[in-house]
Design a protein around this nucleic acid. Structure first.
Length: 106
DNA sequence: TCCTTGACGAGAT
DNA sequence: CATCTCGCCAAGG
């Protein structure tokens, strides 16, 4: 599997996440046929252009929380977008994956 | 080739 | 729940 193919596979999985649902980095990697490549998923997403059509905000970490970006404001934006789609956050700012996550078809 | 980084994950405390 | 530790693996210097 080439790097370009891996990238496309990951982006395809992200693009397929339905509104109102979220998916973890690990699950995305797994679904893309790249087990244990969660960090690669983050790597790819970090390189996305501003106006990308991809629903990057539906991607959260395994804790159901929004991963810190270093670029202030983006994490808040992500939470806003998700809440707008009906995704509920706990007081601790985490999502109940049991209810909102998409499970890989493995 | 070695070393460091990092939008990660799971388990222990 | 919050923190830590350790494991993982691709990229880039």
């Amino acid at each position: 599997m080439t790097q370009a193919a891996a990238r496309d596979a990951i982006l395809a999985v992200v693009a397929a996440i339905p509104a109102g649902r979220v998916m973890t980095y690990g699950h995305i990697a797994l679904q893309a046929g790249l087990p244990r490549r969660a960090r690669l998923v983050g790597k790819i997403l970090s390189g996305l252009p501003e106006g990308s059509p991809l629903p990057w905000w539906r991607v959260v970490n395994a804790s159901g929380a929004i991963s810190p970006r270093g670029w202030m404001g983006h994490d808040d934006l992500q939470r806003l977008l998700l809440e707008e789609e009906g995704v509920a956050f706990s007081a601790a700012g985490r999502i109940n994956l049991k209810l909102f996550s998409v499970t890989p078809v493995v």
